[in-house]
Design a binder for these strands. Sequence first.
RNA 1: GCGCCCGUAGCUCAGUUGGAUAGAGCGUUUGACUACGAAUCAAAAGGUCGCAAGUUCGAGUCUUGCCGGGCGCACCA
Length: 656
Amino acid sequence: MLIAITRELEKNLIQKIADRYGVHYETLNFTIPPKIEMGELALPVAFDLARKVKRPPAVIAGELASDAGAMPGIWKVDVAGGYLNFHLDRGAFTLELAQSIERQQFGRISEPDQAGKIIVEHTNINPNKAAHIGHLRNATLGDSFVRCLRFLGHQVEVQNYLDNTGVQVADVVVGLERMENKTVDDLAGVKGKFDYYCWDVYARVADFYQKSEENRKLRSLTLQAIEKGDNSTAEVAEHVAMRIAKAHLKTMARINVQYDLLPRESEILHLRFWEKAYQLLKERRSIYFVEEGKNRGCWVMNTAEQAGSAVPREEAEDDEKIIVRSDGTVTYVGKDIAYQLWKFGLLGLDFNYALFETGNDHPLWITAREKDPESTQPPAFGHADRVYNVIDSRQAYLQNIVVQGLKALGFEKEAANSVHFSYEMVALTPACCEELGFPLSEQDRKRPFVEVSGRKGLGVKADDLLDALVQKVLTEIRARHELPEEESEKIARIVAVGALRYFLLRFARNTIIAFDFKEALNLDGETGLYVQYAVVRAKNIFRKLLESGEDCPKASDSYPDLGEFLTGNDEIWEIVYLAARLPEIVRQIAQSLELGQLCKYAFSLAQKFNLFYHRHHILSETDKRRKQNLLLVADLVSRQLEEALYLLGCEVPPKM
RNA sequence: GCGCCCGUAGCUCAGUUGGAUAGAGCGUUUGACUACGAAUCAAAAGGUCGCAAGUUCGAGUCUUGCCGGGCGCACCA
């Protein structure tokens, strides 16, 4: 809606500028004036034109203002300095917004900006230990991004890749089989949180490897046994990977994260995805065999900007990334290239699929080795036009190689549409490490943060953090309300998840989150809870209104003096205008991938609403028309806030 | 050594493709519940945007150099 008005305005002005000055712009950059009294949209184009036509900006702005006066949706235009400031028709705009919200459109225009299917891959936790806070950041970023894309009308498929045959799983299997002497049957009998159990085992494997060369050899022997299949070690690996994957899904379900498909590495191997990709890479000469030097016997990809025979061997070596090892096994990057090709439908192969039981109503599929004749028809997976891989920034180098692989194969368009959704890690503050009972070296204690390490068992487990949050919220609820325990717990869960997701999403992607319990468990100030509370307050107004037998206003009702009311109330109009900007914010996020912008938006809208709530006591308002206007505003703000919360993956509790 | 990222209030962080007076939260100080529930609101104090040049109508934002910190650059993923 707002976007439509802006586009219309842009189109008209570009034309007017061309007619009057003979200067042609492709786009115009609208900004927002510092104060709402100055208007809703500002355009500094006169500064730029001033240079081009050699006349003062204020004069140019004045001329454009008179041209732009009679445009649809624009009430008036004025000039300040060299800025062109546009004022919207407040009453008409507000009613249109209210109607759009009532249609569940939230003020957006209906068509997506670009058609085509989008795949978002996120979470991707190695299924060998419990999920930690770093994984939560990945999953919340990925999940909220998916929600935003779907809000904009895109078709999105969410994939959570399971590296069920990798080194990390092998390490835990070594620990279980060789250190703990466990068989599959023993493991099946392990009660309690299996992912926690493996967390501890995994943390001890490093020491086990340190002890002897023989122990270290077990790693590759185990890995080979897993890849080969049909043996007891492979069975243990299968048990571990799937059981832990289920634990991860359960953890993620707690924070409202769901997936459409679980592609497994084992299928990429068994269904020979890699062999197909290997063949393609060799045919197109994207990789080559090295006869001598340190990479002797390997198939490598040259990652230099301009590779050529002119470069001496020793230098070329530094730019080579090994894709196939000298023992003939493929590296992770190789498998990832195959997987990425499949995502775009370029591999000419497909997985088999089976439904995966999750206990919730969202259907989840998993790749399977064999076709299941009994299974219902799976949806058409893959064949994306655009792919986002949510992976932390330390893997930027590898993501680049995958994209280079696509380019080398001639898939330029797909390479350009492969996006590394990069974000920085969650680390621990030194204080947090000590709280967890981890001794730190003198050097580490001086550092701003300490990296989470699964190998050392150093990290805050996702479920533990959530439990701590739920407990904290629960004590707050008990102090405020007398409710049945079950209801308190339900509210506590919603509030805790809101707080957690908001906390993880509010930072910019390339900000390292130095995790600290005090900060993460904080429930004051800029938190998800604050936004939830604003909605709860708004809903209380409408609940009371209904209880007293009055009707809630509808967008289709008549509001005879709404325009006048808003013209006389800049503060209230400012709230409405901010509420209308939700789709614009979401559209920005589709570009910037910065979910923090949505947090900031929701928070500032909630802040303005709380002030509004404080200043205008609606239910006791005696002027009927004024009351109706206030109710309309409260309603539309509350609904936009609820939608923003939904996009952040947060729910609204019935009370708090 | 090469590549990428970050230095903004006491602390934790925002700051759209360069735009109008650099913003939030926490913490500190002070005030507001007989109200749609105060998990709230109001007010105050707090800044050489790491340093120095440059680009231009305009720089926290772009360029270069320097200082300080982080992350990559495996026949691991």
